[in-house]
Design a protein around this nucleic acid. Sequence first.
DNA 1: CAAAAAATTTTACAAATGATAAAAAGCGAA
DNA 2: TTCGCTTTTTATCATTTGTAAAATTTTTTG
Lengths: 187, 187
Amino acid sequence: MEIDEILERFHPLPAGSREALKARISEAEYPKGHTLIRSGRVEKTLYFIRSGIVRAYSDADRGDVTFWFGKEGDVVISMKSYVSGQPGYEHVETLEACDLYQMKALDLESLFASDIHIANWGRKLIGQELIKTEERLISMQFKTAQQRYLDLLSSTPDLLHRVPLCHIASYLGITQVSLSRIRAEIR
Amino acid sequence: MEIDEILERFHPLPAGSREALKARISEAEYPKGHTLIRSGRVEKTLYFIRSGIVRAYSDADRGDVTFWFGKEGDVVISMKSYVSGQPGYEHVETLEACDLYQMKALDLESLFASDIHIANWGRKLIGQELIKTEERLISMQFKTAQQRYLDLLSSTPDLLHRVPLCHIASYLGITQVSLSRIRAEIR
DNA sequence: CAAAAAATTTTACAAATGATAAAAAGCGAA
DNA sequence: TTCGCTTTTTATCATTTGTAAAATTTTTTG
């Protein structure tokens, strides 16, 4: 997915503002298994995914728990770092070789301070992430694991071919064994 | 909590921008049990809580499920309406008599378009909501119901005196009976 | 292709949670 | 206070989910 298309996903931008953003964006490739964001740090870079897939996870007693998948067109930010300037709680690693657009958080910050269109674009971007997170939270409270699995199957079927089931299970808030049971039941 | 203090909670504002916001804000009182936001509509008003407590909930098979509590200093918005302009999925009702500051979403929208400080303030506001939502999502995935209850107890102990346990249970993603068991176990 | 490694599924048992019903406790109004 | 109502707790049993270990399948590597 090309950068113009990605930037327009969140909110329309006047050509001048879009060019100002693009002037700060560079490209980078990373292999599978590369860690883009590490917890406990204030992250200084953010990414847009041109191609590939990544996961965000945090450490827990029972190993790491995946709470987000990002794919083509998505933004990769340590939200905590980005919003509050405090060390984040998440790791983000590539699950495939990835082509990314990258940008310094400080560059974006200074564009926010000087360009009102970019400030509003950033507001919309965060807003859309918020809706997605809220909808996931609600689905965790409302729905059974089986329903959540079926939802995932219909909304992003490709995820199941591209990501190991252990990460899918943890994303659904269940164990690998439970997921296996659900899959057997449906078959 | 006074309006200046609430507005400053999210991001510092120059005096002029703060006054521009305050010029669009009025006060209102609502009794306990009043519905501020109804699902299926595009909400045109947003609120800041001066005093009192509210809950957001959605309809499910097994009755309504509470997914957010707001108290003094918090913002009450239908996020879906506000961010995407589409009908929201949540109801918000007062659980106590509430003193609120209220504002038309369109007024805020036009301030976003004309005042860069307010646009960035709005960005920070949404960002902080996102962090809170993300942390709750993670705690739903990582933690047992008992841990979530203990977390709630230590972070907002007053909630338990002000809100019926049926709403607390649904907020924690468990039944009233399970919550009762957890409470008995701890005692 | 065969061996090794990794991922996934299956099994058996234990623990946690849900559903339901009924009892107990708390609370406001007459 | 007592009555009537709501909220909370307790008890029982059924179901779901977790843990641990083994079996199976798939993928990787030589």
